[in-house]
Amino acid sequence: MSAPRPYANSHDRGQGHGPGHGPRDADGHRDAPPPDGGHGHGSRRGYVIGFLLSAVLTAIPFWLVMTGAIASVQTTAIIVVALAFVQIIVHTFFFLHLNPRAEGGWTLLAFIFTVIIIAIVIAGSLWIMFHLNSNMMPMDGMGM
């Protein structure tokens, strides 16, 4: 009876990684997917809602820029960027199925970390190079 111990342990560990425990269930019987697989990989409804939202969030910025519906360029730009962020969030949740429960929260943590790094890299680069450019401007003019 000492044998089951290690097995139980490795079992416990294996479960964390166990490649597609859900899918394995689904292999066996057809009625498995609806209960847990259904909301694990997204339902048809989830994809359709995500797609419709995404289509609207794509159409509006293109329409704004192509028709010039709003006179102010700055206002248009702000709306376009805001809609892009909303759309990225829509895609992340409806298509990539990011949620706090998946993989014990590690995917969400990795995602937040990545978002922070992306923000630092992009905002930092633009900020630094903008100041560098404006500081170099007089010299640039003289050099030319």
Binding site: Q15, G18, P19, R101, E103
Partner: peptide, 9 residues
């Protein structure tokens, strides 16, 4: 299994 519905670990 209940928690890891998305598990391919």
């Amino acid at each position: 299994a209940d928690h890891h519905d998305h598990s391919s670990g």
